[in-house]
Design a protein around this nucleic acid. Structure first.
Lengths: 217, 217
DNA sequence: GAGTAACATGACCGGGTGGTCATGTTTGGT
DNA sequence: ACCAAACATGACCACCCGGTCATGTTACTC
């Protein structure tokens, strides 16, 4: 939709290697410093191109950034939805799948994820509300039907609104991924140091509480 | 402890009005733009002082920022601990108290809270890990004993480690406050538009799930 | 009221920024 | 072989930054 506006055909037609180098340098810089502080000078130096070329590919800093964020959204969707057929699973198993999709995303695209976190808390990113809305829209479009279905099947209680359930799942996944991606955000779990098996049992514990509650039965 | 180093006695002896003006301008600017992008020029303009004066009060930008963050930590502690005697309450009532202390904190000190959020996701804040560690230390020092006690009393199940419980409470409180403070972080609850009564019932629902789980009993 | 110490001021500095553009180089069609 | 169009280059621009410092102003002591 924005494709034609934010990136020139010169860039589209570029050799694949060069394209990757430019995108990778840009993602890395945006992940490191956020939108405003990211330096185009650094990006062009890292990507071994000239500044003039960058401005031939993208109209300006904003267009470059939006192009990369679009890539991020695409990768997120593919990660969550590409996890194989899920329709036969129990509600909590589906939620577990999403937890794991998140963990894998951070593993495969750590810089994209960190860039996203930067956008979350940087005030003057152009078009930021739209960018974040797109991510959140995906989240509620995905979990909303899941909740409704689970409620119909009687898998979860019906005196808690779907929005509240989504909120809690969102909060727990976000915090878990943030702790996993950035150790200093970890609130005591030390996820960064765990191997996959320990992380798995952590996720299981969180889901157990979500399912059965903190009070022993 | 750092008091003598990071702020001059000239500033301490300043007229209360002027002191407040300087601090307020600085907090506002750091909240708006984060550490790196915050402009000392803007701060001195807002506070109606000269740049030279600012440098007579604080050694540099970093010292000013650390002084303000220290204020933040002090205000947080006072907000959570100053909520009256709590020792006789049930575990979940205590947790509810902390939720409310957070809501009130955001109401009273929105700029301090936003500044804190900025620090969370800004990479090159000097001494950032220390700053965040101090906040998190307080959180686990507060909730740790609470969990242990609740487990002894049999108020919560004993097959979930305290760290996991703290992680979940932390995640839910953080997300709730972030959604409350910054509407674009809201994941569908629209907390920003609620009155206190609706927020209260939202908190209750989250705590109900935490207590009894999502599966109907 | 003179003298001095504390405090206030803003022009100025080196450096980095996003963005521009005249110039040079490569490419491909004929 | 030639030429035009597409692409690459980096010096350059205006602007803003954090930080400095010579100079001015205020306040207090005797």
């Amino acid at each position: 939709m924005f494709g034609q506006i934010m990136v020139s055909k010169t860039f589209i037609n570029l050799a694949e290697d060069k394209k990757k180098a430019v995108l990778q340098s840009a993602v890395r810089e945006f992940a490191r410093l956020g939108y405003q502080k990211a330096s185009l000078n650094t990006i062009v130096r890292d990507a071994s191109i000239s500044k003039g070329s960058l401005y031939q590919y993208f109209q300006n800093k904003e267009a470059l950034f939006h192009y990369i964020f679009e890539q991020f959204v695409f990768l997120v969707k593919r990660s969550v939805q590409g996890g194989g057929d899920v329709s036969s699973l129990h509600f909590f198993s589906k939620v577990r799948q999403v937890f794991w999709a998140g963990i894998h995303f951070v593993d495969y695209y750590p810089e994209y994820f960190q860039m996203y976190l930067k956008v979350l808390f940087e005030a003057d990113v152009p078009g930021r509300e739209n960018l974040l809305a797109r991510v959140h829209l995906f989240s509620s479009e995905y979990f909303g039907p899941l909740c409704d279905e689970a409620r119909e099947k009687g898998e979860i209680r019906d005196d808690i609104p779907a929005e509240t359930v989504i909120f809690m799942i969102d909060a727990l996944i976000s915090s878990l991924l943030q702790g996993y991606a950035l150790s200093y955000l970890d609130s005591g779990l030390e996820l960064k140091r765990m191997d996959k098996k320990d992380i798995s049992s952590q996720v299981d514990k969180v889901l157990l509480v979500l399912e059965k509650g903190l009070v022993k039965t």
